[in-house]
Amino acid sequence: MTEADLACEDFQATLAFGAPHHDGAAAAGVSQATVSLVLSGGKSGRLADETRKRVVEAAQRLGYKFVRRGQRIAPGGQSTIIFMADETITDPWMSLAFEGARDKALEAGINMLMGVSHGDADVETNILAGLGNLPILGLIYGTILARQVQIPQSLARHRLVLVNCYDPEHQFHSILPGDVLGGRAATEHLLHRGRTRIGFINGQQGVDAARDRLKGYKQALSSNDVPFDPALVRPGNWEPSAGYQMTRELMALDNPPDAIFCANDMMAVGCYDALRELGLAVPDDVAVIGFDDREIAQYMHPPLTTLVLPLYEMGRAAVELLLDDAGGLHSSPSRIKVECELVERQSTSTVAQLTERRLAAR
């Protein structure tokens, strides 16, 4: 197969038996990034034809197979990934993770199936048993709440990646949101906008996300030489009612906050309602930031600044880990934290930004 064949037919390369990209890079005398770009069918004009030719020839010597995009290929003929979720209705997180995993799997020409177990080990075992002799590349096990899980033996026999959860013995790959860094980023965002007294309405006690977002909040205060005031931290339960009640309590303090960090967007909805009842404007009087970037956040008045809960990206990363494992690229389980990106909207605008918008609207 020639370079011209690749260009004309729009081929992608898939490693047949696990030779890693750094072997191809060494053989071709280029970087791993260049190998990945050429073998994935990338059309970057930055690569000379001679460079592409060297990568293709080296890949063929190392046993790469070239297949048309969309043609199914998987190590050992294992062409299906099973996504096992505990819940999909109460929150959108596992549906988002499944979408990310499915999109990544389809790029590799691999099927995806989903089962919902409600956390019942017997149901999980029965779901796998019902698949018969279906060739399984691996499993993804996901939970709505970030938490520790015990994996049934029926699942542990397969390649397995945990999404939004982790096992106590660290026997399996796990992919988690970067809640600590997210909590820190949210708090620093408010501090950098001139807010000096920041309230925090936390989530359900005992839940990993609540613990980690509070930890990030405290880290940000400490790094910016702002004393931690326990009176500014209130317990919540992820629901709007808690956001409403705790905002009323915060604003009743002798020295109330000029900003409130709600540990999720739903509590920010209740926070908005309480501030409105008190005759206070967001963000003129009190800036508000949430977490999760639910769809409602962009439609609040004003639109809510928040952080993305990156379940879609976590699902994609899970498939990448399974594919790497199938190719023999991992020697030990890894724990990956995925960044929670900040989405800035009008609920945390500075005084200068507010003035600029008002003048522009005239």
Rank of each mutant, 00 (worst) to 15 (best):
V319E: 07
I144F: 01
A220S: 13
Q153C: 08
Q71L: 00
T90G: 10
C8K: 15
M251L: 12
M246Q: 13
D265K: 03
A274T: 03
I175R: 04
A48S: 11
E9V: 15
Q171N: 15
V343W: 03
Q219F: 14
V35N: 04
Q245K: 07
S174D: 12
V55E: 03
C165A: 12
I110M: 09
G77K: 02
L311C: 10
K43S: 10
A317S: 11
A242K: 08
K337E: 15
L113V: 13
F11P: 01
D265N: 08
L15I: 14
K65V: 11
D324I: 01
R157E: 07
G29E: 14
A326L: 04
P256W: 08
V116D: 03
V180S: 13
A27K: 14
T350N: 05
E50F: 05
A242G: 14
P240F: 11
F83H: 06
S95G: 15
Q353E: 10
E239H: 11
V67N: 06
R52P: 02
P256G: 09
E313M: 09
Q204Y: 05
T51E: 05
A274I: 03
E188T: 14
D208V: 06
I198N: 00
V308S: 08
F11N: 04
D23E: 15
P283I: 04
D273Q: 09
A274P: 00
F172R: 01
S40T: 15
A85K: 02
G327D: 06
